[in-house]
Design a protein around this nucleic acid. Sequence first.
DNA 1: GTCCAGGGCCGTT
DNA 2: AACGGCCATGGA
Length: 211
Amino acid sequence: MNQFVKLYQELKSKCGRPAGQWHLWCKRPKTKKEREQVIIEAVLTQRTNWQNVEQAVSHLKKAKVYTLKDILRIDKQRLAKLIKPSGFYRAKASYLYSLAKFIMENYSSLEKMQRENPLLLRKRLLNLKGIGPETADSILLYGLDKPFFVIDEYTRRLVKRKRLSNNLAYHHLQNLFMQNLKKDYRLFQDFHALIVIAAKTNRIPQRKSVK
DNA sequence: GTCCAGGGCCGTT
DNA sequence: AACGGCCATGGA
């Protein structure tokens, strides 16, 4: 058993099963609507705390904006206003709009998108403005159940702390996790969720360790 | 008032 | 390829 599997076991024994504890992202199975929510939230969460995202999401719900199609239906200015609490709201409104447009025009449904070649789909997502590696992988992993390991700030801190790698570049870390784990979307979802839960519950120091 | 949160873009070097 | 400024809000 390698270090990565051990780390997963360790987090799991400390934090328990992530499903249900941590938000929609780890809930399985997901309805179509839930998958679209996850995709929308993947953009809203960029460099923003979760409370602010929840406020934005609640505004969207109040305005009955639940799906990608709903996003295309409303005015971009109005969208920006609705998601204002999530910060960077003008940029995010435009990112959401182009993402929704891309998905609806090219695939018309999430089911069709799930049948696309995953590596090609990832490349196409990365071509969209506002969709970098973390957002693309969050969409693929949590929205579409595709096995891409998500690397975020929490993951980097954990890697640093556990001295698993000196190179903290996105692709390097993603390859490291993916080459050392079974390529299973459920494992990747749980593992990443556990990393976040562990960080949030302060089992892992988020900033400088308190000595 | 200050700091920060699960990024990513763009211009500069 | 790497780096820094920038985008913006609400809560601690």
